[in-house]
Computed example of a mutant assay.
Amino acid sequence: MDISTEVETERVVFVTEDGEPTGETGPKLASHHAETRLHLAFSCYVLRRSDRALLITQRALHKKVWPGVWTNSVCGHPAPGEALADAVRRRAGYELGLPVLDDLECVLPKYRYRTPPFQGIVENEFCPVFAAWTDRDPAPNPEEVGGWRWISWADYTQWLQDPVTDVSYWARDQFPQLKDKMPFSEL
Results as ranks from 00 to 15, higher is better:
Asp2Gly: 15
Ser4Pro: 14
Glu8His: 08
Val12His: 05
Thr16Ser: 04
Thr16Leu: 10
Thr22Asp: 11
Thr22Trp: 02
Thr25Asn: 03
Pro27Arg: 01
His33Ala: 11
Glu35Ile: 05
Leu40Arg: 03
Ala41Leu: 04
Leu47Tyr: 00
Arg48Phe: 08
Arg49Gly: 04
Gln58Val: 04
Ala60Glu: 03
Pro67Arg: 10
Thr71Gln: 04
Pro78Arg: 07
Ala79Met: 09
Leu84Tyr: 06
Asp86Phe: 13
Arg89Met: 13
Arg90Met: 12
Arg91Ser: 09
Gly97Asp: 03
Val100Asp: 15
Leu104Trp: 02
Glu105Pro: 04
Cys106Thr: 05
Leu108Thr: 01
Lys110Ala: 10
Lys110Val: 07
Tyr113Leu: 13
Tyr113Met: 09
Arg114Trp: 04
Pro116His: 04
Pro116Val: 10
Pro117Gly: 03
Ile121Gly: 01
Pro128Leu: 09
Phe130Pro: 00
Phe130Ala: 03
Asp135Glu: 08
Pro138Phe: 03
Ala139Phe: 00
Pro140Glu: 05
Pro140Cys: 00
Glu143Asn: 12
Glu143Trp: 07
Gly147Pro: 01
Arg149Pro: 10
Asp155Glu: 15
Thr165Asn: 10
Asp166Cys: 15
Tyr169Thr: 11
Trp170Ile: 11
Trp170His: 15
Trp170Tyr: 13
Ala171Asp: 07
Asp173Phe: 02
Gln174Lys: 02
Met182Pro: 06
Phe184Asp: 00
Ser185Cys: 15
